[in-house]
Design a protein around this nucleic acid. Structure first.
Lengths: 231, 231
DNA sequence: TCAAAAGTGTTTCCCCTACACCCATGG
DNA sequence: CCATGGGTGTAGGGGAAACACTTTTGA
């Protein structure tokens, strides 16, 4: 380690955090964006985020920013990547530690608070022009989501606590962008034991009622990290 | 995004980078450590690293620190994780963007430069007490290495440009900590086409000469991200 | 009775695994 | 000729993939 680590702190970069929050709505994958109210990039859409305070951890900063701008406790939050190109902010040197977050759509009603002009969900397939390098950050998050869907229990975080197996299959199909076989999908889930049937059913507007299931974290843990949820 | 992003920059954390550099030597996985010459943790072993300059990217900072302390161009360098707990440095708030690096052992001869009291390779199975949260960082890097070995061409980066298939198998065995079947290993490599035979052979002190191979990045790319190198 | 969505088994094929002997060389 | 490490094939089992019809309900 260089002496610099212990010498006087050089005039360093500022540290921010930006969050890519996904949900599923209207059968599509959506990202939460806020409209910038101050320069640079006034009026442009951007990821929610802000500077890290001196006395809070990175994850705490991400949660605080999310709470301030969406008022919602996310279901899943993990660090994504740290973007540190010198010129990524035209005004000054800012390093952004980005986070990847998931919520189920229902309970979320993002509203603009004082910090942002507007807030909204945008389908990932049709995003507006974004501020800074945020388009690259969303791309990176999308790759992580697709990748992670195949081996970690992230799809469940995009659904309410109970869900039908068809709901779950739709989530996989929307994220992976390919159709899955219904019987293989269900067999695999039940073989792994990662879903627990409840006693309740959901009655659709038309058609046979569907059983509601619940994610079984215990069963998932027992399988260790090497679970393959690839269908 | 919060207004803070555009308002006055709060007194923020300092940004450092630390690098976990692995190699294989004496049939074991080894990490490069430097002995600290200044407080805190004087005399303790730590990962090579230092503060990020105002005008260099994160990766550039990592490469610079490595060059300063080892004089070697690494074969593989990727971002690992950003550690930002408030109290991870007892003296002041420092956020560390860590990197994961690989070299083949041969050409490397790390020597202490003016910034560190001493430099050396340590087997991961027998590390000294480390400064800061560096033990956790090494753990994290180890998990990444084991994981990545199974689906990305990282093992090749721990060997010279040409190598025997036995060399390569040993690298896998050392990293994964389990014996592999020689025939299955070789069949799979050749089926994937990720190794190219050269015309040269290596003559061991005793025994039959072994063909030297070279990594075939082109074949690897062609397979897309979804290659499974799990044996 | 019709429309709509839920639910259910079997077969095929490929890949992973386990396993043991001969080959080329140097001393 | 012996010791050392290099190199090769096959058979069996398990999981993934492909595939279509019956069931339950509301209108």
């Amino acid at each position: 380690m260089s002496d610099e680590r212990t010498g006087p702190i050089p005039r360093g970069p500022a540290v921010a955090t930006d969050i890519v929050l996904f949900t599923i709505a209207d059968g599509a994958l959506q990202v939460l964006l806020v409209e910038r109210a101050a320069p640079p990039f006034v009026g442009r859409w951007a990821l929610p985020g802000g500077f890290v305070h001196h006395d809070e951890s990175l994850e705490a900063a991400a949660r605080r920013e999310l709470a301030e701008e969406t008022g919602v406790a996310v279901r899943w939050l993990e660090q994504l990547y740290t973007f540190g190109e010198v010129d990524r902010d035209p005004a000054r040197r800012v390093i952004s530690v980005t986070y990847f977050a998931l919520v189920d759509h229902e309970p979320l009603a993002p509203r603009a608070d004082s910090d942002a002009a507007d807030v909204g969900w945008f389908p990932v397939s049709d995003l507006p022009a974004l501020a800074f390098d945020h388009a690259a950050i969303v791309d990176y998050a999308l790759r992580r989501l697709r990748y992670k869907t195949e081996y970690a229990p992230v799809a469940f975080q995009l659904l309410p606590e109970t869900f039908t197996l068809s709901d779950l299959q739709t989530v996989y199909e929307v994220i992976l962008e390919r159709p899955l076989d219904k019987r293989n999908f269900r067999r695999k889930l039940q073989a792994l034991g990662v879903v627990q049937p409840t006693r309740e059913m959901r009655r659709p507007p038309a058609g046979r009622p569907a059983r509601l299931y619940r994610f079984a974290p215990a069963a998932f843990e027992a399988l260790g990290g090497g679970v393959v949820l690839a269908f």
